[in-house]
Computed example of a mutant assay.
Amino acid sequence: MQWLEVLVLSLIQGLTEFLPISSSAHLLLVPVFTHWQDQGLAFDIALHFGSLLAVIVYFRRDLYQLFIAWCGSFRGRQSAESKLAWAIVLSTLPVGLVGILTKSFIEEHMRSGVYMAYSLIIFGLLLGWADWRYTRASKKAEPPVRNGEYQITNRQVVIIALSQVLALIPGTSRSGITMTAGLLTGLTREASAKFSFLLSIPVIALAALLQTVQLGEAQSEIVFLPMAVGTLLSALSAYACIHWFLGLIRKYGLQPFVWYRLLLGGYLLYLYY
């Protein structure tokens, strides 16, 4: 691999993994503008590990408290922290199960630019509607009470968990659909984003584990230096992206990302139709 490839692919992975704009759609555009060969499964794993490392480090204090509370729940000690920890665990089960069952079908039939374009547009409009409802409610004299992530209800957990299954459709964006579900079920903007980021930890870890198994079966060549640099760049860019995104949505909401999705979806339709 050329170092320019390492830089570009690492930054794309780090900057788009946690934004509601679909990292898969952006990676699809790379061969459109370049003649680069596929970077290989090992490099993909390295980039995902960098993103995973970033979200773990960013939320390390929250994760420590959640883990301690989760362990305490086995001894009958329930708390808001243990409830949130269980919500993260249980919300991962549907997407993990469906992902294993449908992986081959999705890779063979749905990883096209047209599918991604429609997913970007349809789920982008849904995200825009959810954020518009949130903004309108916030401007009312007596806005409805919304939950933080530590007050998440069983109903919200179920809906967000099921919505995460839709992220298996290329172009949907896992963070985008879970934030949409969070907003529609009554979470605050910040809580929807934070819960989405916390949900990404087991999902990325499971995906990386599955890829590692495939890598072992394929016995592909591994070049460690580009992988190490890619992991570092992906982690740094993802960490900065999380921090920037949480600050941005407090001030501007999610509408800028909605418009970006619509423009990107339209461009993909132009390219692939």
Rank of each mutant, 00 (worst) to 15 (best):
205 A>R: 10
108 E>V: 03
85 A>R: 05
99 G>N: 05
86 W>L: 08
253 G>F: 14
81 E>L: 07
25 A>E: 09
252 Y>D: 01
192 S>P: 01
75 R>W: 12
184 L>I: 14
268 L>Q: 00
3 W>I: 07
228 A>Q: 01
40 G>N: 02
167 A>L: 12
101 L>I: 09
245 F>A: 03
98 V>I: 15
208 A>F: 14
188 T>W: 13
140 K>R: 14
249 I>R: 04
62 D>E: 09
137 A>Y: 15
54 A>F: 11
169 I>S: 07
91 S>W: 09
179 M>A: 07
27 L>V: 05
264 L>P: 00
162 L>F: 14
163 S>V: 15
2 Q>C: 04
92 T>G: 03
185 T>S: 12
31 P>I: 06
246 L>Q: 04
169 I>D: 11
9 L>N: 11
20 P>D: 06
60 R>S: 13
75 R>V: 00
101 L>C: 11
113 G>E: 10
106 I>T: 06
216 G>D: 02
71 C>R: 15
191 A>V: 07
55 V>K: 04
240 A>C: 08
186 G>Y: 13
96 G>A: 12
74 F>L: 11
121 I>R: 05
23 S>D: 03
162 L>E: 03
23 S>Q: 05
268 L>D: 00
37 Q>Y: 08
229 V>D: 03
30 V>T: 12
48 H>C: 04
104 S>R: 13
257 F>D: 01
233 L>P: 00
14 G>N: 06
92 T>F: 15
174 R>M: 11
46 A>G: 02
12 I>N: 07
269 L>C: 00
208 A>K: 10
158 V>K: 15
192 S>Y: 12
45 I>N: 02
92 T>N: 03
105 F>S: 09
43 F>K: 06
114 V>E: 12
27 L>Y: 10
74 F>T: 02
56 I>C: 08
240 A>M: 07
27 L>E: 03
34 T>A: 06
11 L>Y: 11
146 R>D: 02
128 G>K: 14
52 L>F: 15
113 G>A: 13
70 W>I: 00
241 C>N: 03
111 R>P: 00
78 Q>Y: 09
53 L>R: 11
222 I>M: 06
255 Q>I: 00
61 R>G: 05
69 A>M: 11
132 W>P: 03
207 A>V: 13
153 T>L: 13
246 L>V: 05
79 S>P: 10
92 T>W: 15
202 P>W: 15
24 S>W: 13
70 W>D: 01
112 S>N: 08
63 L>F: 06
230 G>H: 07
193 A>E: 04
237 S>M: 02
227 M>V: 00
200 S>H: 07
88 I>E: 01
98 V>N: 04
178 T>L: 12
65 Q>G: 12
101 L>E: 04
39 Q>C: 07
261 R>P: 00
201 I>Y: 13
226 P>S: 11
208 A>V: 14
54 A>D: 02
95 V>T: 13
18 F>G: 06
62 D>F: 08
29 L>F: 12
159 I>N: 04
251 K>R: 13
99 G>A: 07
208 A>W: 15
223 V>G: 02
161 A>E: 04
61 R>M: 09
9 L>Q: 14
88 I>P: 01
131 D>I: 10
133 R>E: 10
85 A>F: 03
7 L>P: 02
5 E>C: 11
59 F>K: 04
202 P>I: 06
178 T>C: 10
167 A>Y: 12
110 M>P: 08
45 I>E: 01
